[in-house]
Design a protein around this nucleic acid. Structure first.
Lengths: 194, 194
DNA sequence: ACAGCCATGTAACTCGTTACATGATTAC
DNA sequence: GTAATCATGTAACGAGTTACATGGCTGT
């Protein structure tokens, strides 16, 4: 009673993993990209609010997208470029409009360790939080660079309007995290000298 | 040239997944818990900044912890309760003090979809963001309830001091997200009536 | 009697990772 | 010449999920 597995798995078949749509989305900005370039784009943008997929996964994903005719290829020597197809645009739009986004999942090792702070020393926790602040600063700077690169095409209606909204979102998020972390460091310091 | 796999995998063997330490951490608050209760605790606390593991995973994890002597069991009829051992305390402390926490990973489907906002209608995005705000309100309320349950044992030096720090962190995070989302909705509205 | 919660597990499967393997092109 | 970057893949593996399966206990 199963569907023919050789048939187009979309629609009706199993839904694609979100990362497939994420990569497909990277291909909607007008250019043809190689797997290698897709990875670079992902590292620049997706990593801040999704994940930076491993190189090998990028290649597995584009292979799948190709199989499903959601992308086409242009081969030049040893280099294969991927371009989104009409079917790909359709699948992406369909996914956006009909499946709920879902609530974010946060894997926050710093908060997790703080939760069980009583198993170690306060100084250990302070070091951890200070390192986290430093990493936040680095990451914020990276994202600010990306945001700066969008200036000039970030007005409403322009190609990078939405990416700029998301980048600003991320900057605010990093600022917020930094403030909460500093506040928490303050509360820890109070514990030392009460 | 491999280690004897029957030997104690810790230390020297493969490190435990973070979720193991998370569950171990839940057992450091003084009580013996069943797998079922561990799942409940995880749903109440871990879910906000780590994950709520599936029921089946909880049982697989406690089996592993038992195999490694990081927990012991007390069997009463069909019910098995888990208690952390000295070795468990040691492994947890060791993990906290010697392995870096790492930067948080955020899987944010709302931001991801906003990034490719140009493939759909603005109204679609507005609906998505409004739903997200609603979910944030619900989640914030859930966390506020947890936070309220800690009152009375949340002073420095008390058992739930650290959990209360983390809960307050989470509340601030939810508030921040809500504000950014509303701000983004404003910017989207400007696009409509420019 | 029946629903809902308590309680425990197995099996199949998918996503995504690391490690491995290869080789061309470009910059110094 | 040699290191870094570009470029593409395969294999083994692990974490974690859903679906499945079972059954006791509790309240109405």
């Amino acid at each position: 009673m199963r569907q023919d597995p050789a048939a187009q798995p979309l629609p009706g078949g199993p839904p694609l993993p979100v990362t497939s749509y994420a990569l497909l989305g990277l291909l909607t900005f007008g250019d043809e990209l190689t797997g290698y370039e897709l990875k670079q784009r992902a590292d620049m943008t997706l990593r801040f609010y999704w994940t930076a997929p491993a190189m090998s996964q990028v290649y597995t994903e584009v292979a799948r997208l190709l199989r499903l005719d959601l992308v086409t290829t242009t081969v030049e020597g040893r280099t294969t470029r991927y371009r989104i197809t009409g079917a790909g645009q359709g699948a992406l739009r369909e996914w956006m409009d009909t499946t709920p986004a879902g609530f974010p999942v946060l894997k926050h090792p710093v908060a997790l360790r703080l939760l069980m702070g009583h198993v170690t020393e306060v100084s250990e926790l302070q070091t951890m939080l200070e390192e986290y602040v430093a990493e936040l600063v680095t990451n914020r700077a990276d994202l600010a660079e990306v945001r700066a690169s969008l200036v000039g095409a970030d007005a409403p209606g322009e190609l990078f309007f939405y990416p700029s909204l998301v980048a600003d979102w991320g900057l605010d998020y990093f600022d917020g995290e930094r403030e909460v972390t500093l506040k928490t460091l303050d509360r820890l310091a109070q514990e030392n000298d009460q």
